[in-house]
Every structure is written in C-alpha cells, then in structure tokens.
Design a protein around this nucleic acid. Structure first.
Lengths: 242, 242, 242, 242
DNA sequence: GATGAATGAGACTTCATTCAT
DNA sequence: CATGAATGAAGTCTCATTCAT
C-alpha cells in the first residue's frame, strides 16, 4: 500500500494499546516515532524551511521513500512535531495543576511548567517561532487550528485559576479571559525575546521578574503588602544580572 | 552597474535632496523604492518563503533581471523592508517622545506609537514574525543584528523614561534595563497573539489593558489610588468585548 | 543516493567483476557508463563549452536530474571522459610494450599505440585540445593533475626504453628525461597540427616521418647506416603526398 | 550609429595614415586599441570563456555599451587579439630573417624569434591553446583561417630555408613542406607541454635541446661532425636541469 | 513495507545585447 | 559617441514525489 501515505492513521503514542493481531501496527508506530524524532532533530538544527525529506531520512537511517509511507509531507511532520510537544506540555500542565488546589500555588506551578518546558527544549525554541510564522502563511488550516486549541487549553486553565483568585479576593476584579490571554501573550513575548537574545539570560529569572511586576499589579493590598519584600527585591534585581 | 547590486548606495529616503547633477541617482533610488514597495506587497500577500524574485518583478511591472540590479537576493529585499519599517518606527517614536517632557505621558506616547505602527501595518504583521523566524535561521548575521539594534533603541528609550519615573517616585524601584526589556517582550507578545488570533480584537484595547495591569503593578500607592477608577474599569472590561 | 553524485564510487570498468549481491551496483555502473558515452558523443559534436547537461540527458534518453545523480557537473563528466581515455591508452600501451623486449621494437610499438589511439578517436580529437585548454583555466586542480600523471606515465615508459637504447649504444648519450618529454611534446605537437589541419593527411605518415627525422638524429652511425635507405626514402617522401 | 557595431571597419594599427579630416577616426582607433589591450589582459587572467564583456569594459575604464561600438562580440575581440599577436610575430620573424642571408643562421634566428615571442608572452600562453581549441569549435571560419594563414606563412619561411640548406647539401634531401610542417608541430608541441608543465623550465633550453636532436638528424656527416661536441653536450644536459 | 533511481517542474542567477537618454 | 539600465533567454541545480523492484 505504498502509494497513499496520507491514508495512514496518525495514532497518538499514548493510545497504543493494541491487540496482538495488530502486531505489525506497533512496529509501524515505533517507526513513525523514530522518523518524527529524527525530523525534530533535523528541524532544530537547520530550521523548517531548510530541511529536506532526504535529511530526515538520513537522520532516521532509512530511505526517502519510507518517510512518505508515514508522512505525506514536511508539513505533516511539522504538525506531528507540534502535536507531540503540546501533548507533553498538556501532560506536564495537568500534572502540575493537580499537585495543589490552592490557586496561587497553581498559578506559580503553571508558570513553572512553562519555564521547564521551554528550557528543556531550548534547542528547539526557534522551531516554535517557525511554527507560528508558518501557521500564518500556509494554506493548511490545521496549523492555526492547533495553535488555537492550545491557546484555548492554556488560557482556559489560566482563566479558571484567575477566577478563583478573584473570587477569593486575592486579585482585583478583572476580565479573566482577557487576563488569561494577556498572560499567555506575555509569556510568549518573554520567550520570544529570550530566543532572539540568544538565550543569554535565565528564562526562569525573566518569568519570575514578570511575576513580580504583574502579580503586584492585580493583588489586593493585603497580599501585596505580605509579599512586598520579596517582590521589591526581585524588581530591583531584574533578570539580566549574571 | 549591474554586477554589484549590493554596492548601490542605500540612501535614507528622507535624505534624498539631491542636486540636479545626481539626477540619475534619484531615478535609481526611486526605482529601488518602487521595487521594494512591490516586494513588501508580495511578501505580505504570500509570505517570505513563498515569494519568488519573479513575483516581485511581476508586481513591480519590470523584469526579473532588473530586480537583481537593485537587490542581490530575496534576503536583501527582506532586510531592506525591515530597515524601512524600523526607520519609520524610529521616526514616529522620536516625534512622539519629543511632544512631551513628562515621563508618564511619554510612556503612554511610546505605547501609542507602537499601537499605531502595528495597526497601520496590520497586513504586514505576519511578516514581522517571519522576519524574526528567519533571523534565527539564516546564516546572514545582518538579520539578528538589525533586531538587536532595534531592541537596543527601543529599550533604551523605555529605560530612560522608567529611570525618570523611578526618580520621581512615581514608580517603585526596579531594574530599569530588565523592566524595559520586559515591556518590549510584553508588547511583542501581545502583538504576536493578536496576529495569531487573526487580529480579531483591538490591538489598542489589548495594549491599554496591559497598561492597566502593569502600570498598576509598579505605581506608587498615591498614583495608583488616583488612577484606581480608570484602571479598575479597564481591568473589568478587558479587551475581548466588542 | 541523489545528493552526493560525487560519492558514487568510480570503479574501473575492467574491475567490474561483481558477485551477484552487488547487482544494484552493476546497474549503476552501467548507467553511469551509458551517460558518459552519451556525454562524449555530445562533447565531440558540439565541444565542451557548448554542451549543456540537458544535451547530455537528451542524448542518453534520460532526464536532466538523472545526469546529476551520476555526475555533479559538466567538469566531472569531462574528467571522467579523460579518465576513460587514459585508461584505454594505458592499457593499449602496456599491452603493446609487453609484446616485445627489444627496446627498438618497443619504441616503434609505443608510437604505433599513440597513432592507433588517436586515429581511432579522430572525432574526439578536438576534445583533447579542449581538455588541455580547460585544465589551464579551471580552478579544479584535478584537470592538471590528470594530465601530469598521464605525462609521468608515458614519459616514464619512454625514458626507460631510451635508457636501454643508450645502454645498448644504439642511441647517443642523452638526458633521457628530457628526451622522453621532448618526444611527448613532439607527438602532441604533430597531433595538434593534424587536428588544426582538419586531419587532411595521415597521422601515421606524419609520425613515421618524424621517426625518420628524430631517429636519425640520435642513432649511432652503424644503425643509421643500416636504416639509411629506408630513412632517406621516408624523408624524401614526406607525409603530405597522398 | 550605435546600433551596428559590426559595420565598423577594423583598421590595422599600422595603416593609420589618415587625413586631418578623419581626425575622429584616429581617436577611434586609439580607443579600439585600448579596448583590445584591456581585453587581452582580462583574457590572460581569466581565460576566454570566463571573460565577460563587462570585465573588458571595466578593465578599459569604459562602459559596456561602448565595447559594442568597437567589437561586435567576444569572438571578434579574440580574433583581433590573435591578429595583433600574429602581426607582431610576423614582424619579428621578418626582421630576424633579414639580419642574415645564411640559411643556418636564419634557421637559428627563426627559432630564437619563436622563443622570444613566446617567452615574452608567457602570461598569455594559455590563450593560444584556447584560441586553437576555440577555432576547432566555433562556427566562425575566421578562426581556422587565421591559423591556416599563419601556418602557411611560417612554414613557408621554414620551407624556404630548408630548401636552401638542402641545396647547400647541409641537410639530407627531405620533403621540405613536410619538414617545415613537422618543425612547426614540434615547436608548438614543446610550447604546449611547457605551458601544461606550468612553465617550470626554460623554453629556450627545451628548444635548443630539440635543435640538437633534430638538427643532428638531417645534417650531413661533415656538418654533424663539426657540431658534434656542442650537440653532444646539449643532449647530455637536457633542458630539465636547473 | 522498504528502497532509491528517475523524474521534471521550477527557482535561481547570469550576461549578451539593446536602446533611450 | 558614450552611457548603463533594462531585458529575457538560457543554463544551472534542487528536490518533492513517484514507482518498479
């Protein structure tokens, strides 16, 4: 069935619970994973546009035609890579949130998740930018859709936490959707400049600095007072000092 | 002068006050400008990677070879486009800053400049993302250099204003470099998501919302109190409501 | 294996005795040979500089891209053609030399080899000139290297024969290296003018005439006397009479 | 009259005896000469095929279009260059011959002329090879015609000298046409290898060595005896020793 | 399923030549 | 006459995609 690569179903790695009769499928899935992992390495090294199918095949130690058995195009590889990432991110986020029921801790944990996620993928960071840029240009709507659903997910979680913080009077009243979206923008903006600056400072410090600034903004006076010393110290220190 | 397109001197548009003896130069500059303008239109429509020199030539109503007379490559065209933008942005920023000597007004004005700049170039917005992504991938260091110098310029202005706000005790003490860089990141992050969201809400409202959040964070208690009503209203309203 | 045409191993045609397991390789080699043969035909007809990859592909009945699978450039094709020639020449020379152990006969045989080689490739003759001219101009050092090694080979054989002739007192004492090099120059010079003259006379006659002149020069008096009649006849006859 | 460069008559430099009314023509001729000289420099440096009209114009300090005023094509420049050379060569040869009436001295002088001519143009040497190669390939018959007439001239002179040497019984009887042609081939063959060898030895020594070999071949016994010591020394020494 | 040779559309770039100024 | 910008044909080379083995 070599001729229609596109027909291959695209199984989630975590759904691979297969009966013994679909044994062959397991192998297929493993191979698909191997190709995808190779693609990410090549993408990360050379960038999306400079990556040729042949490069991916070489990296995976297979031959060109075989890549087409599993992925119909570079675009599909790129999407699958994003899916894998976002799966990981979602998993990390859910794990993180579930550790605590206190919204303030959860807010912190959410940011930590983002930091760890990005820092652990520092080499792939430019790929995210390329993904965004590509999503805006390609005719394939799947790209923007993926981004939208990821945004919905993350800002949904953020909005929920914020809602609870407002309910607890820890935060001023605020349009939670807007605030969650703003937070997302801020996070990605910091990330963006961290990447453009060649990752020359600590992403964690930058995020913590932003928390000191933003947090201070919405907190109620009592809470702000309680955190004043810590906040003040962080503000004065910045995130650029070595 | 066909073989060294790169050597064509690249005069600032605003310096083109030439004596009659440099007549030929003026024509060249005008042609270069025309090609560049065509390129931007094509880039904006199809994206950087999908744009072929032939497309630019068609758009400009000239033939392929002529494009090469003025720009050695697509990259050069892309850089020139960015230069033109940044020139415009710098000019707008300087004009804006010089309107007032009050740092609070200047901070507002700075943000207004950014808003107006981006909104007036809404169609080209994805190009900025592509520029960033490309800068991280190409071997041509000029791309990242351009970004660095733009960052230095804007964050320099921001840092100066912040320094004065801190000196006036309007703002809490803060590492001004970090804060200026954070502001830049935040601005670009909001812009990024505005673009990814298909520019479906008002960029201005988003920026104003962010001012309510951030400004509230660093302001001294008196100032915050004075602005409380306005801030509170903005926070509650968000930027997503139509 | 498309991206590194150059890496294709370039087996000597006479070594292609392959086990059945290297079946694929044999096919590749055959195809390479077929392309090369086509290239030589096209080169011979139109000349090196006028030959486009597309022409070679057309002649071989394949498409452009396929040529690039086997040869990275026109230059490589040209070199391979020369290699093939020189392989053939070397083989013919070695065969010829080994037929006899008498140096005088060997000297004759060597010249016969050259004559037969050139005459049998009369159509390709201008290509040799082009190869020389190109070797002096291209940045690719392989061209001159090939020429040098061919010169070393031929003049080495010539020097050895001459050394033996001198040892036998058949020839006057002479610097054998210089003499061998001179012989080579003379041969190629005659060939050159034969080509420039449109191959309008017999190359063989010209070479024989030259033997009468040169041989007469170095031979010892006894030998010269013995050959006088034959030599004298050849000298009087020249090589231009039909 | 810019449109038909080809119509310009191609005056010999030595024929420029013009009335004052054709004053402009003198300037034209001078300019033509200047362009030609520039062309030779560029040809010599980069080779015929790598030379663009623009390069010639740059070297001459004029602009591209002007080259076309004087030469319709690169080919015409190449031919003109050859003409200039051959004019010089012819002049040198005639001068040289006329210095003496003794054919042996004239034969020597002829060779000296060739040596000096080639040595003084060592840098241009590869151009001669390119000229030959090009002559065999181009559709323009003028190239081969030029070569033929030069050959006729030189071998004519050579034949005349040889005829006289034979008449004087200094040389054995020989077909003078063939011998003259052989001499020409030998000269060019030595020259050819001298160029291919990177001009690493003395062309003069190589020519003198060849004279020892060839001269010895045709000379009558008495003459040979008279020159024996000199000849023998040259033969032993060769031309490769430093 | 895997392979990798073949394909050929298509982008890049160069440059001889023209021609308006 | 000189200029040099414009032209566009022509060649190089790449690589996504197909498909026979």
């Amino acid at each position: 069935m070599p001729r229609q690569a596109i027909k291959k179903n695209v199984p989630r790695a975590d759904v691979v619970v297969q009966s013994s009769t679909t044994n062959g499928s397991v192998k297929q899935i493993e191979k698909r994973d191997r190709i995808l992992a190779s693609a990410v390495r090549v993408f990360a090294k050379s960038g999306y546009h400079a990556t040729k199918i042949q490069d991916v095949a070489n990296e995976a130690g297979i031959c060109k035609g075989t890549v087409y058995e599993y992925f119909a195009s570079n675009d599909e590889l790129f999407l699958a890579m994003y899916d894998r990432w976002m799966q990981d991110f979602e998993f990390a986020m859910q794990t993180c949130i579930s550790q605590s029921s206190d919204p303030l801790s959860q807010a912190d944990a959410l940011i930590d998740t983002a930091i760890e996620f990005y820092e652990s993928r520092a080499e792939d960071a430019p790929l995210l930018l390329e993904f965004w840029a590509h999503a805006l240009r390609t005719n394939n709507p799947a790209f923007l859709e993926r981004i939208q659903s990821m945004k919905a997910l993350v800002s949904g979680v953020g909005a929920e936490i914020t809602t609870r913080l407002v309910a607890l009077k820890a935060f001023s009243k605020v349009d939670v959707q807007s605030f969650a979206l703003l937070e997302l923008g801020i996070s990605d903006g910091i990330f963006l400049h961290w990447v453009l600056d060649g990752q020359t400072y600590s992403l964690r410090d930058a995020y913590k600095f932003r928390q000191a600034v933003i947090g201070a903004g919405l907190m109620n006076p009592a809470l702000r007072l309680a955190l004043r010393t810590r906040t003040s110290k962080k503000l004065k220190q910045g995130f650029l000092s070595k």
